[in-house]
Simulated scan of single mutants.
Amino acid sequence: MTRIELDRVSGDFGFEAKDAFGHTVRLDSSPETGGANFGVRPMQLLLMGLGGCSGIDIVSILNKQRQAVEDFHMTIEGEREKGKEPTLWETVHIHFALKGDIDPDKAKKACELSMDKYCSVAATLREARCIITWQVSVNGETVYNNNTLHHTK
């Protein structure tokens, strides 16, 4: 069982979350809803978790294939539902930008395996009917883009 602890430490909505290993994350609401920009919005943290989860998968897969990942940058963009409560993530697009001595086909396959099979955060978002699209570039060249495909439940 996973255990997370949260304490309010700043204003009305400024929380600090701590995992069992003592790692901390600061969370807050937006200033428009009474927050003070003390930390990350909880729904943004979910997208950060998506990036971390898929990034770990992708680097692990590429390392096993003896691909030399020298740099890895992700951009994650999302749109939430309008006019609903709760406002779930409706669409998310990820750009995986890898640099190094990496076979483009292996990079595409590693990203595909993460997004469609291994990443638990991606699976959780898909269960909530979020459409996740992604693209891969290696050394500045786009090698895959499924921005027009829809991944649903």
Rank of each mutant, 00 (worst) to 15 (best):
I4V: 13
E5S: 12
R8C: 00
V9Q: 13
V9I: 13
F13K: 11
F15E: 05
F15W: 12
E16G: 09
E16A: 08
K18W: 02
A20D: 15
A20I: 04
F21S: 09
H23S: 08
T24H: 08
T24D: 08
D28P: 08
D28T: 09
D28L: 08
S29K: 14
S29E: 15
S29D: 14
S30W: 07
P31C: 03
T33G: 00
T33W: 06
T33D: 08
A36C: 02
N37M: 05
N37R: 06
V40T: 15
R41S: 07
P42A: 11
P42C: 14
M43K: 07
L47Y: 11
M48K: 04
M48H: 06
G49W: 03
L50M: 07
G51I: 02
C53D: 00
S54M: 07
S54I: 00
S54W: 06
I56S: 06
I58A: 13
I58S: 10
V59P: 02
V59M: 10
L62G: 10
L62M: 12
K64I: 06
V69M: 09
V69P: 01
V69G: 05
D71L: 02
D71Y: 05
H73G: 03
M74V: 02
T75I: 13
E77C: 01
G78T: 05
R80Y: 14
G83F: 07
E85F: 06
P86R: 04
L88M: 03
L88K: 02
W89I: 14
E90R: 09
E90Q: 13
V92F: 10
V92T: 03
V92K: 08
H93G: 06
H93Y: 07
I94N: 00
L98K: 01
L98N: 03
K99L: 01
K99A: 15
K99R: 12
K99S: 15
D101H: 13
I102E: 04
I102P: 00
P104W: 02
K106V: 08
K109E: 10
A110V: 08
E112V: 01
E112L: 05
M115H: 11
D116L: 06
K117E: 10
K117T: 10
Y118F: 15
Y118K: 12
C119S: 11
C119A: 06
S120N: 03
S120T: 13
V121I: 10
A122C: 03
A123V: 01
T124Q: 06
T124M: 15
E127L: 08
A128P: 00
A128R: 12
C130V: 09
I132M: 13
T133R: 14
T133L: 11
W134A: 10
Q135K: 14
V136R: 02
V136W: 06
N139E: 08
E141I: 07
E141Q: 12
T142A: 06
Y144T: 02
N145F: 01
N146H: 03
N146E: 09
N146Q: 07
N146M: 00
T148E: 09
L149N: 12
H150W: 00
H150I: 10
H150S: 12
T152Q: 15
K153Y: 13
